[in-house]
Amino acid sequence: MKATKVEEKIFLTIMICSTVFVLSCLILILATVIWRGLPALNLSMLLQTPKGGFYLGKEGGILNAIMGSLFLAGGATALAMAISLPIALFLHFYAKRSWHGGVVRLALDVLWGIPSIVYGAFAFILMLWLGLRASLLGGIIALTFLELPIMTRGMDEAINMVHPLLKESSYSLGATRLETALKIVVRQAIPGLLTSSLLAFGRGIGDAASVLFTAGFTDHLPTSLFKPAASLPLAIFFQLSTPFPAVQNRAYASALILTGIVLGLSIMSRRIAGRLTEHVIR
């Protein structure tokens, strides 16, 4: 009896230690980025585009990358929303138990796991076929592929959370599936739909490997769909690979900005989800 108690104590200690270890590793990342990034962060970083010799440590900022990233991820999120919502509705209303639904779900799960660099390569091939060069549009296409499965899965879950009785009531009043979907279920699921869109946006804005091939990089603000666009992750990567400490410090500041955007979005999406639930019937 004693031995089993001792064993339990030992393992409980190991478990608590590893929980503390895992959480502290994750917090350490945030702490490192804040600690190294904050001193190098200033307003001109946020509000200026790179001037001549920026990558040698001279004047300028990373506004080009911030705007580029917002445009890339924003465009991709808009496109992905237009594709994801119908798919999520299809899965829920028209293919709940059919084999189509199963196949589509499995495909989405598989897409979720495909590495972003493969999406980059695929979008690159598409661009070759379409005769596009590295451009904002190319980056948006690659990121849309990346965001699609994340968003669709989130939306599917959000729609599944809507109480089934609500759907039944709507059906029993003679509403068609489409009417029930758009007028009742979507309305009820809006917080969840928004959350999953914002999560996908966060994933898109942080991804570098798919944009590398397709969007290129430029020191200018994005002005056209067919011109290259800068992005934050790549700006961080390029700044970090220069040998100058001043530029590397800027990379840390840029990493802080990117982390801030992503975590801010994530927290905001939780907030929104909480705020919008007042009309939701449970």
């Binding site: 350490l28 990342i29 945030l30 942080g206």
Partner: peptide, 24 residues
């Protein structure tokens, strides 16, 4: 406390993990 924190940290971009790797 732990579950939302872990979810939150799952969203950190990989480039930031790379920066952390280079720094520490």
């Amino acid at each position: 406390l732990a579950k939302p924190l872990i979810d939150l940290l799952a969203g950190i971009p990989s480039v930031v993990y790379g920066v952390w790797g280079v720094l520490t």
